[in-house]
Amino acid sequence: MAILVLAEHDNDSLKPSTLHTVTAAKKIEEKIGEAEVHVLVMGEKVEAVAKASAHIDGVSKVFLADAPHLAAQTAEALALQTGQHLNASNYSHILAPATTFGKNLAPRIAAQLDVPQVSGISMILDAHTFVRPIYAGNALATVQCEARGVVVLTVLSTSFDAAGTTDTSAAIEPVNKVVPDTSGVRLVGRQLSSSEKIELTSARVVVSGGRGLQKAENFKLLEDLAAKLHAAVGASRAAVDAGYVPNDYQVGQTGKIVAPDLYIAVGISGAIQHLAGMRDSKVIVAINKDPDAPIFQIADYGLVGDALAILPQLTEQL
């Protein structure tokens, strides 16, 4: 028996999410014993990715499907190709990272196999029992799959450490057959968000400034921090009113509602209308010179002090 990990990559390099997924695969391997972890790399000119995969600690074999029609990595083509590979080998589990790549692909594979999937696991109790957050993390469910059939999983990267790399390389084998894609799906283009302007509502990290920044020029300090964190820049209404930044920066009840993994509020007192736009952020950092500012009431980490002095230090230390 073996466990298959679907590699996430951009044809040039392997994404770290794959490393976290391999760790999850190894955990399952420990539970069942006598299993191998295989990685399937699908794409075009992905030899480098395959090599990188072969050097992941704990991976015993890498399969490579290299074809022009796999370049775009559409779910349709990859699911067909994975299905072909599964016909050829015997797997107990298929794992993909719970990223947009894995979320897009894994359920399609599961459906083609007519088996269920367990999404976004955060813990592995045994080969068929997993813990996963539900209700946006407000509850944790322990779920168990039936013992028959392949188990399809997507894995939360944040819950499993990244697997290490080794000097010894696992074997790299081409898949026994590359299947053509008949779906007619065409990739029109990709638009990777540049660091200059990251969309507030989809950013993983948001840094926002308020009246505490005192003047428009000081927003530059915030932008430096944002560039370092690959974050979007937001603002309170007071900062918008004062003319520091345009209206579309506004986070709040009457602006944009954001819920990033990390929200850093700088010089923002925390009027309810602002809080309403960011309070669902996972981790909130507040930097303000007024120790009584309401923003500290909802902050996970509060730092009292002068924003203009703190910002450059923070940017430097990150």
Partner: peptide
């Protein structure tokens, strides 16, 4: 209270 204390001059 909320409006007046968030007005520009209040800062």
């Amino acid at each position: 209270k909320s409006m007046l204390s968030s007005s520009e001059s209040a800062g």
